[in-house]
Design a protein around this nucleic acid. Structure first.
Lengths: 204, 204, 204, 204
DNA sequence: AATGAATGAGTATTCATTCAT
DNA sequence: AATGAATGAATACTCATTCAT
């Protein structure tokens, strides 16, 4: 990477970090672009060299994080063969990331949902990539005779995501985050889906 | 109900209906209060005699609809004793309402989520009431020895809602709504949760 | 006129007057809408109840003034039969108005020309009405055998206007307005056009 | 001219040409300096090595063109002795240039007038030089006893320019430029001024 | 209860210009 | 001479809400 390119990447990163902090702190709408610029140590206009507009900045944060999330997931699942165990670890990993990156979680769980573009127009390819790992587990489980063949991977994937996401949102919104045991919730949700998709045990 | 009260209710209803139509058509943000007023056949200021502000109007639609949803649910579940069957009918009923009231679903699934108040500040008592029916099914299932005692009704309730809600949102956002089989999805989700929460079968 | 309508007209007039003053003082571009509002004693938003935008406000001043100019012209020419004398008085009247309404002249001669809409898009009907009086003089002069039949009223009208307008602009832009003798210039221009359009004298 | 100077001039010319094209195409305000730079094949910053700023670029186009116009005029009038004929040819020449250089005319007639500097601050020496030719004709005509001594060359010069300019502008703005007969208009305007300034014929 | 004219807060974004390389 | 990444000033306009009638 050339010196110029490196400086460029570094500047983009500074802006992204500043935006996460400011969005988490004041909310997307209340966050002023000039606040983000000041915190990033750049001029207002510079932000527009890297992002189309304020909303694009929010969406870019989402994409960057989904990429990170996805690659971390791959690492976490590496070497785990049993699809059921993979699903368990998926849920655990997901909530661990939520808990360990509060600011980012706040932005993605809450602020992102206030964006018309995200809700209505944007087709989140990165999210599909991430959730696709779950759908793949289902397919493999079916091939291995562990999961009922009538389970539809696509809609179940959304159901699983909805379940994780809603619990994640309740945690983020909760005043007292310690009452929530996210690790336990992760295992509980995973267990329900694993058991719920499982083939009937042989009735002897 | 006095004539005055009846007239009053009637005007409130006209405003609510107009708001649902305009919100569904143009989105919450793009919808102008004056548009709603014109469609309802009242003056702009009149809306503020019935609602605190534009967002309150949105939230009121949510509450009104949740009340309707809740009472319809009670009716639907009347006489159904088996908690597992109740859960199945809950899911089926939920998606039937989504499908049969597109405009309302559009507003509640999409526009409502763009509201800061709803996402961050509002504690949706009505939603809790609605979902509480599910939690109650879980508790009854546990009492009847049908559901594993370690299942936590509260978090499972949110997981269940998240699953239904996410599928509902995907349907609302889908360009081609016919590709989605909501009835089937309802049964599938219900089945996963019922099986997932069920006690282990006795190993003979 | 009802009380409400009268109040309304009065407010529009206050805004127009304030705008002329501020435009003349600071120029169209430098003039802030809020300056105009403050001077008119209304809120910023009120201006937009009467005018579509800042440029529309400028164009409206032009139209209002052209109406005034036109009706004043009619009065001035009343009873004057000789088309040549009418042209002379037209020029004199035009420059008298310029001199007596410096602020308005400044706005119309200078600021108006900085408006893209006025220059490129706007079809100034009011200006045509005003200049049409000149064209009509030409036609009458031709009917009476005073003006050469080959003179084209339409293009000559623009030439006449261009001549008046350019001299008016030089006067407005002049640092020392006293060096200019507008009355004399009026008679000179009129004389050139009258003589220039006149039929050849009979060569005895 | 050294090679370096020639290269320099060539680059300046490329920028000027690009600017005329872009100004004519998108208008002065909408034209971005970077558009002009791209079209000229130079970097944005390079433009500022040759011109003080965007407006200076516009004014430079005006000056360059006026120089060309002026020298072309001298050539055209060469050998024409009769001041009246010189005036006729002036008008004809002026409109011929307008018609044959549409882009330039568009920029000078329309875009230039949207420039605050041009309208208010700039003292167009080059325009005076050009128009001075007309004033000189008047003076010569007076010396030769062809033009009335009371005609004021200075103000008549502006009137003449205003007449030409206004007709030129109407032509540039006209949707259908073929309906306009610029050559005829040139002769008509010239004729009016020549006759209008002429001494009275001797009454026998 | 109903009206609707008046209010006024609030900020993203562009792009001409600079200057370090 | 040439580049082009970075700068930062500057404000019109909308529309939810109010309140005098």
């Amino acid at each position: 990477m050339s010196k110029a390119e490196s400086r460029k990447s570094e500047k983009r990163g500074r802006i992204t970090d500043a935006a996460v902090a400011v969005f988490a702190e004041r909310g997307f709408h209340a966050a002023r672009v000039s606040d983000i610029a000041r915190r990033a140590g750049v001029a207002d206009g510079t932000i527009y060299l890297y992002f189309k507009n304020k909303e694009d900045l929010l969406l870019s944060i989402f994409e960057d994080q989904m990429d990170l999330l996805r690659s971390g997931l791959d690492e976490t699942l590496q070497g785990i063969e049993d699809p059921r165990e993979r699903i368990r670890r998926f849920a655990t990993y997901h909530f661990r990331m939520v808990r360990e990156h509060r600011n980012v979680a706040e932005v993605l769980q809450v602020e992102l949902r206030l964006s018309t573009k995200f809700i209505k127009d944007y087709r989140p390819q990165r999210l599909w990539d991430y959730l696709g790992v779950f759908a793949q587990c289902v397919r493999e489980g079916q091939e291995q005779g562990l999961i009922r063949p009538e389970v539809v991977p696509f809609s179940t994937m959304w159901a699983f995501f909805g379940a994780l996401d809603q619990i994640g949102m309740q945690w983020v919104l909760a005043r007292n985050k310690d009452k929530f045991n996210l690790d336990q919730a992760a295992l509980d949700v995973a267990e329900i889906f694993i058991r719920g998709m499982a083939v009937d045990p042989p009735t002897s």
